[in-house]
Design a protein around this nucleic acid. Sequence first.
DNA 1: GCCGTTTTCGGCCCGACTGTTTTCAGTCG
Length: 573
Amino acid sequence: MDKKQVIDVLDRIALYLEIQGENPFKITAYRRAGQALETDERSIGGIDDFSKIKGIGKGTGDVIRELIATGESSVLNTLKQEVPASLLELVKIQGLGGKKIGRLYRELNVTDTASLIQACQSGKVRALPGFGEKTEEKLLEAVQKLNQRPAELPIAYMVGLAESIEKVLVTIPGIVRFSRAGSLRRARESMKDLDFVIETADPEGVSGQIRERLNVREVTGQGEAKMTVVLPDTYGVSVDFRFTSAADFIMMLHHFTGSRDHNILLRHLAKEHGEKISEYGVTPVQGPVLTFSSEAAFYHHLGLNDIPPEVREGTDEVERAMEAPLGLIRLSDIKGDLHMHSTWSDGNETIQAMAEAMEARGYAYACLTDHSKSLRVATGLSEDRLLRQLDEVASVNARFTDFTLYSGVEMDILPDGSLDYSDEILKQLDFVIASIHSSFSQSKKQIMKRLANACRNPFVRLIAHPTGRLLGRRRGYPVDVDALIRLAKETGTALELNSNRNRLDLSAKWVRKAQQAGVKIAIDTDSHSKKMMEDMALGVQTAVRGWIRPESVINTMSAAQFSDFIKAGKQPG
DNA sequence: GCCGTTTTCGGCCCGACTGTTTTCAGTCG
């Protein structure tokens, strides 16, 4: 039984207790025990005494120990006999929580979605005290919507929606400023909904404008402080708009950026000093409510170093910010982009145009890395064309003074593990990337053989999009990423964090492990157009989620350092 | 059920909104 399964059992126990109408604090105790386990860096086997972990006491500790010893929980088994398991599904229904589910079960014998629909249709639900006609209607609607859309949507899709919303918000005169909040601001890979915080003196007018201009499908909540709408997109994504005054903006933004668990940690901390935190500010022991002009100032008030949104997940970030500045990478640390394509293969722009756009972004250098010959769908370069391209890169590079364009290639690692060019060719390039674009369904063993061959080549400096995943669409090929990290370390090969919004590959979890192992990372956009260069921001956000420091990233090097890095060649570690 | 520089009892994060009520419980984030 692994950690995830143990946490899952604790959560299920909590849900059963909720349905039974148990003491709410007992319920959160089970959930908190699960969170404590998740936060702990050790694996289940590496923990000797669970009760020593804060949040786990005798009761939950016994449950965990029994689970590990026997694979079962007598607490859970008892609950299963008292409450049908099918009831657990009902919490997914909008507007239903443990308490209402418990009442529906005890008084109307509702056990699953089918019996809930029946109870609604026969008018029995509205007769229950606390329920009513409207509740019954909404429940019926919510049940029917239940499986119509995935619970969470990938960040690429949600960023697209957010961008289109922002285009509208900037044109509404009553809006002083606004910001993304919630999961998107924290750059989670997938999320349920979108959140915006808006400074305005006229929430009502602005609400009306937003409803009209976004052509919303439905308004599911409307008050003085907030509005919730459903967008007219394919999935019917829900968006929260929270309105605020100038003074409250930062605290409101902080609050709605979350995560909820992070906010809870901060409130516990404030409480130790007798202070109270809400979205309106910090209430001190005495005196007026405090607000702040930046989130950093707010953290500072709590005795913490600044914590960027991307790591506010309610794990150990508060503890770490207490000890020292986190020192995590920022977008401004990026000095170049090492992965881009031109019209020579499948890019949309000339080499010159791509280089100019990179320079305009303030970069000191970039590498041109078109596809290699075997990737025919992308008109990969034959040896002959690749060598001719070297001349073109040199001539484009000569037109810049404070910017260097390096020659490179994104070379295919072929299904049999061989590489698409000979070392004779590769040694003429400044920067060689290797990646897998074919035979995704091979065994893990064969995929690892391919990656090992690439890492062991003396000219391959970087493995691009190491897992080949496309978020929400494709899992990628089977990679033993731990083994790849060891290979990268051993051979002095860097691993990519591909910033493309559909990839974000490696993920935050894996770049964190790579950094811990001493492997260098490149945060690249793999741009095929100028527009795609903007995804660097998402790549850096993902790196921050992985607690990446600038010194672990090769494209944070200055122009001179990077030039030396190229010349020095691979340094096996 | 868990916890303690207010420590073995009495608390447990905080507020908006909805639908039900006629002062508030439940849900959500």
